[in-house]
Amino acid sequence: MEEEVVGSTSSSSSSSSKFQLTFWEVTAAGGVVLGFMVGLLGVYLTMPASDYSFLKLPRTLEDLQILRDHLESYASDYTIQVLVGYCMVYIFMQTFMIPGTVFMSLLAGSLFGVLKGVALVVFTATAGASSCYFLSKLIGRPLVFSLWPDKLFFFQAQVARRREGLLNYMLFLRVTPTLPNTFINVASPIVNVPYHIFFLATVIGLIPAAYVTVRAGIALGELRSMGDLYDFQSIATLFLIGLVSVTPTLMRKSKLQHSIS
């Protein structure tokens, strides 16, 4: 089985390194981008006439604070437009692996509070991850083999070994920073992680980290650097939750080995 996996992977790697995509695959990806652009344009056209030079993807805490200060008044008067615009931007960033979604999570906490912010972040992150999953299933194989060959071999081997407890393993990956979420989104369809497992692990597994980030967004003015987001206690808590998620699988394997012996 391992020889079959490695053989197919190596052959796919050599052929996919050229990024050969069909016309219809490129057209589908372009259609997704166009759909997002049309949606964002619709949100922009329904907002009141104003100077929107402050609207840009935040790259620093200073950028985020400026964006928050301008959006606070719009969030109360034009709640639907702000929510739709926020969701589309977050999903777009997740779909196309654009860095900076952590800033969007902080913004959700700052604008909408903890409960609404966590619900919003989990919804948009899950929708964006799902969009990335299906887009990667269509055109992602060359990209994954080119950018993360070593991680892909590791992930593929782990998924093959943990088929019976795959949901627990995916939960562990979502809760802990063992593998980047971006990589998980793109690589999961390549290594045959079923979508229903991917979806459940994403919805449940993102809640702890979303809570930490959204809660920090409420005190946005007190953050001095992104390092303040995750202290030792927060990281240790996430790993503890991750270990709990894989405990049923470990216990099942232990019982199986004991019964065999």
Rank of each mutant, 00 (worst) to 15 (best):
S73A: 13
G30H: 04
E72K: 15
D231L: 11
I207P: 01
V159A: 13
F154L: 14
A210L: 03
S15H: 14
P48M: 07
I241A: 08
K151A: 10
P48V: 04
P48Q: 11
E62L: 08
S131L: 14
V186Y: 11
V38F: 04
E62A: 15
S11R: 15
G109P: 01
G128M: 02
T95R: 00
S131G: 10
T27P: 03
T126D: 06
A108E: 01
A49L: 12
C87Y: 00
E4H: 12
G128C: 05
F183I: 06
G42Y: 09
P99H: 02
P99L: 02
G113Q: 04
G31E: 05
S73W: 06
L64D: 06
I197G: 05
S131F: 11
I66F: 04
I66V: 15
F154T: 14
M47V: 07
Q158G: 14
A187T: 06
F183Q: 03
S136N: 09
T182M: 13
G39E: 03
L167T: 01
F123E: 00
R162N: 11
G109Q: 02
R68D: 10
S12Y: 11
I139H: 04
D150I: 15
V6L: 15
V38E: 03
Y90H: 05
F123T: 04
M226T: 09
A49S: 13
L240D: 02
P180Y: 03
M170D: 01
F112P: 01
I190P: 02
F154S: 12
V82N: 00
D63I: 09
G117N: 01
V191P: 04
